[in-house]
């Protein structure tokens, strides 16, 4: 049985993403030295939406964007019940000496972003790496990792699942609870 709670409705999600965009603009000016990189598979949609909004807000179609798959860098290869599904990596621009913003939907144990940093370094040596996340599940970290830009901080226990559901440029965030029997 799953009880469902809406953490962010479509309007709240929209406002949150807008705020994250303006926070990015504060730090990255015209983005000429910056690259947005979505972590596959679940960070890709959020990164595309942020990329599109930044282009609209800045009226600058030149903002760099890519998608990064971390499958080959994961630390749970051969330790999972289900096999890892490999996705594509699409980074068309140079990342050497650039300011990278890694983007994912939920920060939980920190293991995905650790893999993401390893994967990123194989493309070059960025000047800096920041991390943007829509939902930060604090108190669940297994590695010393924190995000630079956070949409909403959530206290959730291990039996709870947070799901970001996208519908085009819009979406909402759910908290599903596995009820104890």
């Amino acid at each position: 049985m799953k009880a469902l709670k809406e953490l962010l409705n479509p309007k709240q999600l929209d406002l949150t993403i807008n705020r994250l965009c303006y926070q990015l603009i504060e730090n990255h000016n015209d983005f000429s030295q910056s690259v947005l990189i979505g972590l596959q598979p679940r960070g890709s949609e959020l990164s595309k939406i942020i990329h599109k909004r930044l282009i609209d807000i800045q009226n600058n179609p030149e903002i760099n964007h890519g998608l990064l798959d971390v499958s080959f860098y994961r630390d749970d290869f051969r330790r999972r019940d289900t096999p890892i599904t490999v996705n594509s990596t699409e980074i068309k621009c140079e990342i050497e000496d650039k300011r990278i913003i890694l983007i994912d939907d939920v920060l939980y144990t920190g293991r995905t972003i650790r893999s993401g940093m390893d994967a990123l370094m194989d493309f070059g040596r960025p000047k800096s790496v920041e991390f943007l996340v829509l939902i930060d599940r604090r108190f669940s970290r297994q590695l010393p990792i924190q995000a630079d830009y956070i949409g909403r901080t959530v206290d959730a226990v291990a039996s709870e699942r947070i799901k970001v559901i996208w519908d085009g440029d819009s979406g909402h965030v759910e908290l599903n609870t596995m009820e104890q029997s």
């Binding site: 080959f72 860098y73 390893d118 370094m121 194989d122 070059g124």
Partner: peptide, 9 residues
């Protein structure tokens, strides 16, 4: 075809 042509899998 990347600058670093290996992965740690």
């Amino acid at each position: 075809n990347r600058p670093i042509k290996k992965v740690p899998s």
